[in-house]
Amino acid sequence: MLISPACRDALEGWLTHRKSLDGVADNTIEAYRGDVLGFLTFITGHFGDTTGLAPLARVKPTDMRAWMAHERRRGVAARSLARQLSSVKSFYRWLAEREGFEPTAVLATRSPKFQKKLPRPLAEDAARAMIDTVELQAGKDWIAARDAAVLTLLYGCGLRISEALGLRFADTPLPDVMRITGKGGKERVVPVIDAARRAVARYLAAQPFPMEPDDPLFRGARGGALSPRLIAKAMESARMQLGLPATATPHAMRHSFATHLLEAGGDLRAIQELLGHASLSTTQAYTAVDTARLMEVYDNAHPKGRRHG
């Protein structure tokens, strides 16, 4: 079922708005496009009307339920459907404001419930043991030094794996502070611990390839850019050796960075900045710290929040 040219134009207009005004990343834009296009295609077929924007303005709660039931029958999981609904609501807010219709039927639709997966950080000794043990998985000394350097950047600086593997030779020797461009093109300042500087310097001294400024810092066995899958595989072997759960992934090293900083008395907002999270609630979930601990941090940080008793 093809959607009307007016619907397609509206979708592209909204995506352009999100990208230009809100600075949304390209891959997020493509996810939005897929989510809303699927909804528009369903509504067009549901009403049997391929003219203009009229079908969108007369969507009722029963139509929303029909769409969600259709998606579930297609095998769409609750978590994915919740994301699709969020995209559709965002599109409707924008469209209703432009076209002057009432979007309540869409905006009031309840998101399906799903179990949120909390990240699982490693204990401090397990994170250190992972860095030490991952070196033992490599057949060559320089690869051992490389894998240890990558994990030290994840755990010591809170980098995402994509950010660590995005570093260039021109970024070395690592400075005291790095500027990292993360999700959505957001830039943040990250302090670099001595251990990370030493680990990267040791890798560079051992690696066998000529390096130009624009070359990727971390190289695969044949000299190409290092794949994140290779780091994940090295961690799989190391976690089996250490008896750690399957949640001990490269991303878990970043979780651990945040959790251990907070446990050491770090300020939640400062950790939010270091991680590059747009929302403080993301940092709270990321750190997987209980509410009592968060309240303690809040009480100590906020003069009006201190409770006396």
Rank of each mutant, 00 (worst) to 15 (best):
residue 250 P to R: 00
residue 266 G to R: 06
residue 250 P to E: 00
residue 262 L to Q: 05
residue 278 A to E: 12
residue 247 T to I: 07
residue 291 T to M: 14
residue 266 G to Y: 02
residue 302 H to F: 09
residue 285 A to H: 14
residue 241 Q to M: 14
residue 282 T to F: 08
residue 246 A to L: 13
residue 268 L to A: 11
residue 248 A to Q: 06
residue 296 E to I: 02
residue 272 Q to N: 03
residue 295 M to R: 15
residue 273 E to V: 03
residue 286 Y to L: 13
residue 290 D to P: 07
residue 278 A to R: 12
residue 261 L to K: 04
residue 304 K to F: 10
residue 291 T to V: 09
residue 252 A to S: 11
residue 254 R to D: 05
residue 297 V to R: 12
residue 263 E to V: 04
residue 295 M to W: 01
residue 259 T to Q: 05
residue 283 T to M: 04
residue 248 A to T: 08
residue 281 S to Y: 00
residue 257 F to S: 05
residue 243 G to A: 05
residue 256 S to P: 07
residue 277 H to K: 09
residue 276 G to Y: 02
residue 279 S to I: 00
residue 255 H to D: 04
residue 270 A to E: 12
residue 255 H to A: 01
residue 261 L to W: 01
residue 273 E to P: 01
residue 277 H to R: 06
residue 302 H to Q: 13
residue 282 T to V: 11
residue 275 L to Y: 10
residue 271 I to P: 07
residue 264 A to K: 15
residue 294 L to P: 08
residue 268 L to F: 10
residue 294 L to Q: 08
residue 299 D to K: 14
residue 243 G to I: 01
residue 297 V to S: 11
residue 251 H to E: 05
residue 284 Q to E: 00
residue 276 G to T: 00
residue 240 M to L: 15
residue 284 Q to V: 09
residue 289 V to G: 07
residue 292 A to K: 15
residue 269 R to Q: 09
residue 285 A to V: 14
residue 263 E to C: 02
residue 246 A to G: 11
residue 243 G to V: 03
residue 277 H to I: 03
residue 286 Y to P: 06
residue 301 A to D: 06
residue 279 S to V: 00
residue 254 R to K: 11
residue 283 T to Y: 02
residue 267 D to W: 02
residue 306 R to K: 15
residue 284 Q to H: 02
residue 278 A to Q: 12
residue 282 T to I: 04
residue 275 L to G: 03
residue 292 A to C: 05
residue 243 G to L: 08
residue 255 H to S: 07
residue 246 A to E: 15
residue 263 E to Q: 14
residue 261 L to D: 03
residue 273 E to D: 10
residue 291 T to F: 12
residue 266 G to N: 08
residue 247 T to P: 07
residue 270 A to Y: 01
residue 277 H to S: 04
residue 245 P to Q: 12
residue 266 G to A: 15
residue 274 L to R: 13
residue 289 V to N: 10
residue 246 A to H: 14
residue 294 L to V: 01
residue 277 H to V: 05
residue 304 K to Y: 11
residue 297 V to I: 15
residue 280 L to I: 13
residue 282 T to N: 07
residue 273 E to M: 11
residue 305 G to R: 06
residue 295 M to N: 13
residue 274 L to Q: 11
residue 268 L to M: 14
residue 285 A to N: 14
residue 299 D to L: 02
residue 300 N to D: 12
residue 283 T to E: 05
residue 307 R to S: 14
residue 241 Q to T: 14
residue 269 R to H: 13
residue 285 A to F: 00
residue 242 L to W: 12
residue 292 A to G: 13
residue 261 L to N: 02
residue 287 T to D: 03
residue 265 G to V: 08
residue 262 L to V: 08
residue 293 R to D: 01
residue 251 H to T: 12
residue 249 T to V: 09
residue 259 T to F: 05
residue 291 T to Y: 09
residue 278 A to I: 00
residue 245 P to V: 10
residue 279 S to L: 02
residue 280 L to R: 09
residue 244 L to N: 08
residue 258 A to P: 06
residue 301 A to R: 13
residue 287 T to Q: 06
residue 302 H to E: 12
residue 280 L to N: 06
residue 242 L to N: 10
residue 250 P to M: 03
residue 297 V to L: 15
residue 255 H to F: 02
residue 278 A to Y: 04
residue 245 P to D: 12
residue 286 Y to Q: 04
residue 255 H to Y: 09
residue 298 Y to H: 14
